[in-house]
Amino acid sequence: MKIAVCIKRVADSETRVKIGADGKSLDEAGVKFILNPYDEFAVEEALQRKEKAGAGEAVVIALGPPQAQETIRTALAMGADRGVLLQTDEVPADGLETAKVLAAELKDGGYDLILFGKMAIDDYNHQVGPMVAELLGLPCVTTVAHLEIAGDSGTAEREIEGGVEVVEFPLPAVLTIEKGLNEPRYPALKGIMAAKKKPLDVKPVTPGGGCGGGRGGGRVEVVARVPPPERKEGRIVGEGAAAVPELIRLLREEAKVL
């Protein structure tokens, strides 16, 4: 089984977000970068599928700056076989541009499965996986929370509002992975040492130029990055169950939500 996992280097979720001087970018000073947490589930799934099949290859692919090599090595330390960095200094804000670059790399790879995390925790774009599937003409299931594969077809479960969809699909396919599909392993210390010796291809790419489709082409462009509005200071209504009637009154008369 040959599996590709598309991963992303993102700012740590514990990071305090500071906005850059241009008012558009993230101020990266002091920010720690990690492997996107949802991608960890995708990497783990690839490793488990490969281990179960007893043969094959797990390839991790990232679009990002030179430092994303370290992110790739995290996946290699977990057990992936080799990495590809599609190197660019500017990761596009536009999901379709990213998808086009990835699709070009994946096209002739002969992969049985192409996995993504369901989204990246930095841009919340939530779109690159299914876009890659469209560009490659492959079937796609998003936010997979349960997966079974038998021969050249698979069954996935994805959560929808108030229920779960059970979805069948043929391989090869693109899947985006939800948290909880598996329990990602910690890279063992030996794995960390071994990762240094695994192949990592660096290929310069130039994404961008807009999407060029539709009737007017166009793209997504970041105009500004702003902090969320502060919530106004709340108040302690009181202590214990005795404060409940006052809370009810405030919710009815002041907040008007009851």
Binding site: A11, S13, T15, R16, V17, I19, L26, A93, I121, D122, D123, Y124, G210, C211, G213, G214, R215, G216, G217, G218, R219, V220, E221, V222, V223, A224, R225, V226, P227, P228
Partner: peptide, 23 residues
């Protein structure tokens, strides 16, 4: 079209300009 898209789980808001047709 200018949209607001929360990122970093709402720790920042992105104002995005969309210029495709259709948006």
């Amino acid at each position: 079209v200018i949209v607001v898209h929360p990122v970093y789980a709402g720790k920042a808001l992105l104002k995005l300009k969309l210029t495709g047709t259709p948006v």
